[in-house]
Design a protein around this nucleic acid. Structure first.
Lengths: 141, 141
DNA sequence: TTAAGTGCAAATTATTTGCAGTAAG
DNA sequence: CTTACTGCAAATAATTTGCACTTAA
């Protein structure tokens, strides 16, 4: 069923040196199984696992997403005061945040061009730059 | 004590059409009293009010900050999963977020230059663009 | 065997809300 | 007067944690 050119969930974990437990393999498969990037929250991934018939506790989903992010497999994006999204695309790219629905989607990364960036203050270094473009439904005339 | 060229807390509320209650005046004064921009959280402003001897409940601080933001007097910035910051500088400018301490500070706005921005998807419009530059202490060699 | 991973339920943190009382227009 | 604002305490939402059990190495 897996396409040979796609990295398997096991490979994905292995390259980060993470133990391939049943739960992690299941979540990893849901995240990268089809090779397409996606944005999940702990809650949405928990739901997806439930629908797929993989029993995983919500706490483990939270822990696993954090572990994946720390290992560089995912990128955490915090948009709203409350929710964290995790993006399987770890490259530096901007996001659209839909104010009405709370959804997050990729913005075409090649259409953002930052000509100059402020320098990090002395003794500090830039870890990453988050660009969130908040959009809303255009009001009907 | 107030410098005549600084807008008073009362003026500041008036221009947004907000009722000048004792609590709002006190919080407004703490926010813009000296004409300098600042970043506060509900908790930090609550503490500042307490220290200044202005009795205000935490719930009112939360509500007031939200009202001020909706009225365009403040700009809300959500950085981490948990906390919201409110900035008295409502212009579009980037921020430094200190990963170790959770502090937020202004980054010089004139050193950020966005050459191109992705267009909003059809039917949508850009409400604002948040640029957060995450910085951390440089590791000592 | 043994340190890491998991699941549950309870704990935490940031924020919101219901509702009775208080004050601004 | 009358509607908005305030304060408290309880409610909520997202996330984390303590601890006994399970599993990968």
């Amino acid at each position: 069923m897996d396409h040979p050119t796609l990295p398997s969930a096991a490979d994905w974990l292995a390259k980060a040196g993470l133990r391939p437990t049943r739960q992690r393999l299941a979540l990893a498969h849901l995240l990268i199984g089809d090779g397409k990037h996606r944005h999940v929250t702990a809650e949405s991934l928990f739901e997806a696992a439930r629908r797929a018939g993989d029993p995983v506790s919500l706490a483990t989903v939270y822990n696993t997403l954090k572990v994946f992010s720390e290992a560089g497999l995912l990128r955490e994006i915090t948009v709203n005061g409350a929710k964290s999204y995790f993006d399987t695309d770890t490259s530096n790219h901007p996001h659209f945040f839909w104010e009405e629905t709370g959804d997050l989607s990729d913005a075409p990364g090649d259409e953002l061009e930052i000509a100059r960036l402020p320098e990090a203050p002395a003794g500090a270094e830039i870890s990453k730059v988050d660009v969130v473009i908040r959009v809303r439904q255009k009001a009907p005339a």
